[in-house]
Design a protein around this nucleic acid. Structure first.
Length: 555
RNA sequence: GGACCCGUAGCGUAGCCUGGAUAGCGCGACAGCCUUCUAAGCUGUAGAUCGGGGGUUCGAAUCCCUCCGGGUUCACCA
């Protein structure tokens, strides 16, 4: 691709254009590349169209350029179709020249309730971002910060203590704990004194009360067991888990130190604060209360330092919902002031909230789309779809349904720009047709089916290509875009651009598929098309894998 | 009230960074395509004053200003 572009640029320079810029026309009927002559019109004091006409005379066709054509102010270049297929032989994803070590923090659950759809968005985004960064050559450390202490877990604990009769879980263990959290909130409505009891429990926990700590450990272990099952279904493995309970009171030394260096200051109530208002923030931010207790920011400072000590990272990415945007701006500026990490090496990958049709999810009332529920709902929908089409053993149906259901769910989330809020309507649920994960998987399976019937296992690479059809050319051209798309997605942390690309590619492939036969064609055509569909399968599989989605050989 | 984000056909969205040739796609609607490599597919039709207004520019969905609508956030909560 770039080779073709640089060739055209060279030709333009030879024709007398000093700094040529190429653009891609909106429709390939206009050509493969275009040079807009507007930029020259002032300098040459000629109409853009006249310039284009003059240039046209100076450009000859060669082994890359088939011809040029003037349309209005544009000089349009038509590239020989086989050149695109030829470039496909050597195409691939470009790796970073300087690989970086990147810590990606995601999931970050509380331990008082099971994971919900919001977490799924977070996890799927975090995982895909990690894979993208690895794809371009970076080293990624997947980390998870567990909020395992605080008033929320005390509430679950209190309800269990009061009404749980020391029962063992009779359902998925994290759901069991979550039920007590919901129970607490229900009871607390009638009896506001419960809140004080919950705080009492938290104080006891902090004081190291044995009974409370034992209960806390037991309930957390149930939650972790449940989380692990969910992570396993989603295909997630963390390299490192940080627990809030290990360092919720850490970071105080760093803060005091910064005070003595006059980086931080005392406010009129003797709280230690970060003087953020000097740097364009609305307010200063308290980091250590006068009574010596820390806040969220305090331990986040500590954690950033800890991660730095643990991994000496070049970049640190936090996958956290958009409602915490301000907090991360404050944190990043603070870390910069402390001289710990430069702001440019920190990134808050912010994503929009997941809404239900009637508003926000409320986990304290149990109004949530539970992660496990939605996964199994997707899976059973997939079972129905499979049974409509095939008669297979139950084991095979289940195997395929897992892969298809998860693809539908993950792709549905990832095809949206992370920034935007999204609404999930359980009634309409997630489709398997149109712009979906299964659609991409299906395209892949179609290719695999042909390759099976052709009994081809190795890559077919024709020496040369001839009489390339329009649809073959369009497919080849799209395949060549893959590496650019990956680079863009990795540097902008936007898995959605990969998802969008895969939709386009699958559409183009399916059109190609309907219009061109492969099996039974004469050798040169057959080889050319096998080459194309093998490349397509490769890109579909690799692209999906960047989204954390698997493929099926048959579906 | 301040700050930030979002506003593109009935619905869901891409394009906005880096301005350019008829605003791309999916769902839904309508009309078609399975005796040939998987119809989870393909083809066609209808459907958009790109939230309103102003500005910059030869040219604005894209950049700037402003207004309107929606959201998030502004704690010594995480």
């Amino acid at each position: 691709m770039t080779k073709i572009v640089s060739h055209v640029l060279r030709v333009l320079k030879k024709a007398g254009v000093k700094n040529p810029i190429l653009e891609v026309p909106p429709d390939d009927r206009f050509g493969d590349y275009a040079f807009g002559c507007f930029i020259l019109s002032k300098e040459l004091r000629k109409a853009p169209n006249q310039i284009a006409v003059d240039l046209e005379k100076k450009v000859r066709s060669d082994d890359v350029i088939e011809g040029v054509k003037v349309v209005g102010p544009y000089l349009n270049f038509f590239i020989k179709k086989e050149v695109f297929l030829e470039s496909l032989k050597t195409s691939g994803v470009t790796k970073n020249t300087k690989p970086e070590k990147v810590v990606v923090e995601y999931s970050s659950p509380n331990t008082n309730k099971p994971l919900h759809l919001g977490h799924v968005r977070n996890i799927v985004l975090g995982e895909s971002t990690s894979r993208l960064l690895e794809e371009v050559g970076n080293k990624v450390i997947r980390s998870c910060l567990v909020n395992d202490r605080g008033i929320h877990i005390s509430k679950s604990m209190l309800a269990y203590q009061k009404w749980g009769d020391e029962r063992n879980p009779d359902k998925k263990t994290d759901h069991f704990v979550g039920d007590w959290y919901v129970r607490y909130n229900k009871e607390a409505e009638k009896n506001p004194d419960l809140e004080e009891e919950a705080f009492e429990l938290l104080r006891k926990w902090e004081a190291g009360d044995k009974k409370v700590v034992t209960l806390w450990k037991k309930m957390n272990s149930w939650v972790y067991k449940g989380f692990d099952e969910t992570y396993k279904k989603l295909g997630i493995i963390f390299d490192k888990t940080y627990y809030e309970s290990d360092h919720f009171s850490s970071g105080k030394e760093i803060v005091k130190n910064a005070l003595s260096k006059k980086i931080f200051v005392l406010d009129d109530k003797k709280n230690i604060t970060v003087p953020l208002s000097k740097y364009g923030f609305d307010n200063d931010k308290v980091v250590l209360r006068a009574d010596g207790t820390g806040v969220y920011l305090t331990q986040d400072i500590y954690l950033a330092k800890k991660k730095l000590d643990d991994y000496k990272y070049d970049k640190s990415i936090y996958v956290v919902g958009s409602e915490q945007k301000l907090h991360f701006e404050q944190l990043f500026k603070t870390l910069d002031l402390l001289g710990l990490v430069k702001t440019k090496d920190l990134f808050h990958l912010s994503y929009g909230l997941v809404y239900l049709p009637d508003g926000k999810m409320k986990s304290r009332e149990g109004v949530v789309v539970d992660a496990d529920d939605i996964i199994s709902e997707m899976t059973s929908l997939a079972v129905e779809e499979i049974n409509k089409r095939h008669k297979l053993s139950k084991a095979e149906v289940d195997r395929r349904a897992d892969i298809i259901g998860l693809a539908a769910l993950k792709f549905f989330i990832l095809k949206h720009d992370p920034l935007k809020d999204m609404t999930y309507d359980p009634k309409e649920s997630i489709s398997f047709e149109g712009e979906t994960g299964p659609y991409i998987q299906y395209s892949y399976a179609r290719i695999k089916s042909i390759l099976r019937k052709a009994k081809i296992s190795k890559d077919v690479v024709p020496k040369s290509f001839s009489s390339v059809s329009y649809k073959e050319y369009v497919l080849a051209k799209k395949l060549l875009e893959f590496s650019e798309v990956v680079s863009y997605a990795a540097s902008n942390l936007k898995p959605s651009s990969v998802a969008r690309y895969l939709i386009d590619l699958a559409q183009i492939f399916n059109t190609f598929y309907i219009n061109h036969r492969i099996l039974g064609e004469e050798k040169s055509v057959y080889d050319k098309r096998i080459f194309l569909i093998q490349k397509t399968a490769g890109v579909l599989k690799e692209g999906l894998s960047l989204l954390g989605v698997s493929v099926l050989e048959e579906m």
